[in-house]
């Protein structure tokens, strides 16, 4: 029984990735581009989900991790001319360092205080990007140079101006994130994190060092978010302070909640649903964020577990 569920889980996730792979051959151009963005933002939401969905820590500051990746990759590519793969690693690295430091400090708090502290640190990060406008060009942002639009890796030439390549690169990174998330949440670390979410004092009593575990969760979550940011910068060749605003922190929360916090594929489903909701709403009205507001309220009132969370509760209890 357990064996078959195990394989059901694996088959399901492979099928989801395969579906996305096949989609590129049937989707019209616009939706191919849109799905590329959706996949990158879904990686961001999956990073967020690691902390919020599995560990139960609500952060309102994940935009700073996304921005750390964005600037870490973008600025090194812009100023030092680092090649795309190296800049990508630099972006992930800056996210790792930032989330480690932020985790060390802000994990001294919990609950509402944790939310507010992360929000404030993110605000400081945003102000930092605008304070150093000489380098970041603040709100205006920087366009990555032509040299950062292609790279050679292992003897293969990659041209990032190609929409097909961008789609498949995002897909590969998304698949990697899904795999990592699955490995973690189905392993001992994931079970310990869920234990913290459900009842932290009891987890402490069982002998777990919950601070260390939570720190690992923050760092993992921040690093994955930073990877999304680095990907965004390098694929779309633009970095700007707008990505560090609180709105992006809220979006990560929203994507996760909509798709289902604490489910592996939930953030992907949530990101796609929200992206298209906004996209369609914006063709009717300038007030398209109204759709976001209404969605949030309805979700929290009637589907607090989100799309996949509700499905898991009603029909598929084995969904990870």
């Amino acid at each position: 029984m357990i064996q078959s569920r195990q394989s059901a889980v694996i088959i399901l996730h492979i099928a989801a990735i395969l579906l996305l792979f096949v989609l590129q051959f049937v989707l019209p151009d616009y939706h191919q581009l849109a799905m590329t963005r959706v996949m990158v933002l879904a990686i961001f939401a999956m990073g967020y989900n690691m902390l919020f969905g599995y560990t139960g820590l609500l952060s309102l500051g994940h935009a700073m991790f996304f921005a750390a990746g964005l600037y870490g990759a973008g600025l090194t590519a812009y100023y030092f001319g680092w090649s795309v793969p190296v800049a990508f690693v630099a972006g992930i690295g800056s996210g790792f360092v930032l989330s480690l430091v932020i985790g060390l400090v802000s994990l001294r708090t919990s609950g509402v205080a944790f939310m507010i502290v992360t929000m404030m640190f993110a605000q400081v990060a945003y102000l930092t990007t605008t304070y150093f406008t000489d380098y970041t060009r603040g709100e205006e942002g920087l366009v990555l140079p032509q040299a950062a639009r292609s790279f050679d890796l292992l003897g293969v030439h990659f041209d990032l101006t190609s929409a097909v390549l961008r789609y498949n690169l995002s897909l590969v990174l998304l698949a990697a994130t899904v795999a990592i998330t699955l490995l973690i949440v189905r392993g001992p670390l994931g079970r310990a994190l869920v234990a913290i979410r459900e009842n932290e004092p009891r987890t402490v009593m069982l002998g777990y060092d919950t601070f260390r575990l939570k720190l690992m969760a923050v760092t993992l979550s921040g690093t994955i978010s930073a990877m999304a940011g680095a990907t965004y910068a390098l694929l779309f060749a633009y970095i700007g302070a707008g990505f560090a605003t609180i709105q992006y922190s809220i979006e990560a929360l929203l994507f996760t909640l909509l798709g289902g916090a604490g489910t592996v594929l939930g953030p992907l489903v949530g990101t796609a649903a929200m992206f298209y909701l906004i996209d369609i709403a914006s063709s009717y009205t300038v007030a398209y964020m109204l759709a976001v507001g209404i969605a949030l309220v309805l979700l929290v009132l009637f589907f607090p577990k989100g799309i996949l969370g509700t499905i898991r509760e009603r029909w598929l209890p084995w969904l990870p």
């Binding site: 609500l58 609950g111 509402v112 939310m115 809220i250 929360l253 909640l257 009205t285 300038v286 007030a287 398209y288 964020m289 109204l290 976001v292 507001g293 209404i294 969605a295 949030l296 309220v297 979700l299 929290v300 009132l301 607090p304």
Partner: peptide, 22 residues
Amino acid sequence: NPESTIVATIGMLYIIQQSVLL
């Protein structure tokens, strides 16, 4: 509930702001 109300009031934020925009 503390966390639900935060999410709900974020929703209210957008509803009020965007209704005013309209």
